[in-house]
């Protein structure tokens, strides 16, 4: 399993580049998961303007039925948002679950 761990804010080029790689991996039917923590939760928020460099994030769910999108519960609490604020369905998981994902990952890609 390829684990994509996003940690950068939405306006960081790494966010877009990581998303492109995740989309390619999913399109190739590679087992994947995506974890968002810290400032990267911004990437999941519904856009407030028409300028949306991460628009393709919607393809994960809409095109590929990709459901393995996880959000770190500590970051989620700190951001004080609801899952309804996110543009794709996510699973909020705690540190034990994150450890479990880490242990299952063949490769971890940090963006």
């Amino acid at each position: 399993m390829l684990m994509f761990h996003f940690t950068k804010p939405a306006n960081h080029a790494s966010a877009r580049q990581g998303l492109d790689m995740l989309l390619m991996a999913v399109s190739l039917d590679q087992p994947c998961c995506a974890l968002y923590s810290g400032e990267a939760l911004e990437q999941l928020l519904k856009p407030l303007s028409s300028f949306d460099p991460l628009k393709k994030i919607g393809m994960l769910d809409a095109v590929f039925d990709f459901a393995d999108i996880y959000v770190d519960s500590a970051s989620f609490t700190a951001m004080n948002v609801s899952v309804d604020n996110f543009r794709v369905p996510v699973k909020v998981i705690d540190s034990a679950e994150i450890d479990r994902l880490n242990s299952q990952a063949k490769h971890k890609l940090l963006f």
Binding site: L2, D20, M21, L28, Q30, H107, K108, L109
Partner: peptide, 16 residues
């Protein structure tokens, strides 16, 4: 990216 992902999938270690 497809080439990279396919190579990665068949490789034991990634160093970033």
């Amino acid at each position: 990216l497809a080439e990279f992902i396919e190579t990665l999938a068949n490789t034991e270690h990634l160093l970033q």
